[in-house]
Structures are given as structure tokens and as C-alpha cells.
Amino acid sequence: MKPIDLSLFGAKGAIVEAAEGKWGMAIDQDLCTGCQACVVACAMENNVPFVGEIDAGYGRSMHWIRIERFWEGEYPEIRMTPYRPMLCQQCGNAPCEPVCPAYATVHSQSERINLQVYNRCVGTRYCANNCPYQVRSFNWRDYTDERVNDAIATLKNQYNPDVTVRRRGVMEKCTFCIQRIHRAQDRAKAEGREVQDGEFAPACAQACPADAIVFGRIDDLRSRVSRLIRQKHGVHYLEELGTQPRVTYLVGGAS
């Protein structure tokens, strides 16, 4: 029997892609020291704005990656759970995609990640509601407008020209540093070769001092990331929802 091609039904936004995906990430929670280097690196790379004390404390911080931790037990038998960097899982079957009425969050057919098309976004915030990982952040105010935040007048000099600067009313989220993917692919293509494993990494993985974040092709069995995620102690959070996350967490450490 032939498999059913879902795209025949025009299921473009919500298409359930082949199980293997393309780009993926492995995060070793045993190595993560919670140092926040990834958080800042991501913000610096992706022009993520800061929101100020009050908004940040009210659940409006714009981090694309956050480091979670919980407690177990009570003093003195208290333990902190391993730090868990939580970022967009680039689900193969993403709950955020079908609910957007404007097709502003769509699945990239070529890179097999979830795109957020800022200029198409009208700000219904349905995607963020529907994201089981709660990793989408919304531009609640014009944080990047120097008329609103005059510090931007000089700070904007560090803006990355490869990444759109978002204004109020637009949803955003981790893109797996798609600008770096494109740059690497473009360079490889210009040189007439394939992108090598480890040739580039998203900002978080590149900064991580503990080497806890590894990025690469998960459809290539020889890549470092796919070797890592085939280890026994890899988990996909909330995979019971059928989201097919592309970020694998390694828990429990070696041996």
C-alpha cells in the first residue's frame, strides 16, 4: 500500500513530516551548569530585547531560551533538579502551527523546523497558548523602539543585521539560529560541498561552556548529535502529546 501524502490534502501548515526531521539538538542536563551563557548568547545573536524589571517579573521576559530548575525534598535533604534549558523544540508535529489564522507560524519544508514569520504575525497569541513548552515570547511593548526605550539609540549598534528586529504585537521564538543555518549552507554551496557536522552551531550551543548543547543533523546517523540522542538516557519532554520534539534531553549522566 502506498503511504498517504498529507500534502495532497493541502495540510501545508500542519503537515506531519517524516519522523526523522533534519536539524536537531541534544542537551545534556548532567553537564548543564545553569550558567545562563546560552541565554545571553541567544539574546545577543537574535536581537532579543530586554523588558525591564516589572515586565520581566510579570512573565513578559523575552528570553528565547530559559533555564528551568525545581526543588526536591526539604532542607537539609534538599536537591535541585538538574538545570533544564527550555527552548523551542522545533516539533515535527507542532501544536503552534495549525492554530495560527494567518500562517505566520509555519513548518519549513526545506529546513524542517518551525518558522515564525514576524511580518505576517498579527498577534492573536494562539500559538503561544497552544505551545505545550511555553517557549514563545510576545513583544508586549515596543521594546526595540528608541522612542520608547532611549537606551536603544546606542545599543542598537550591536543588532545582528541577519535577524529581523521585532516590534510590538509580534510573536517570536527560537529559530535554531536559522540565519546561521542559511549562512553555513550558503557558504557550503558556494564552495560546492555539503555542510559539515559541527561546522556551525546556534548561538547557545556555541557559547555553552559546559558543552552541554550539541547541534547538528539528526537525519545523519554519523553526526555527533544523532550519536548522542541514540544513547539510552535521552528523553523528549511531553512527547506523549505527539509533538515529535527535535530537542533531546540527556538525563542522568554518563555510565
Binding site: 518558522l115 514576524y118 511580518n119 542559511h182
Partner: peptide
Amino acid sequence: EKKLLDCGTCHY
């Protein structure tokens, strides 16, 4: 087609 008509080719 996948590449050239992908939103993520130009918008990110």
C-alpha cells in the same frame, strides 16, 4: 520548490 517557496528562506 521546497527551498524557494519556503517562508524561512527570506523571513527570519
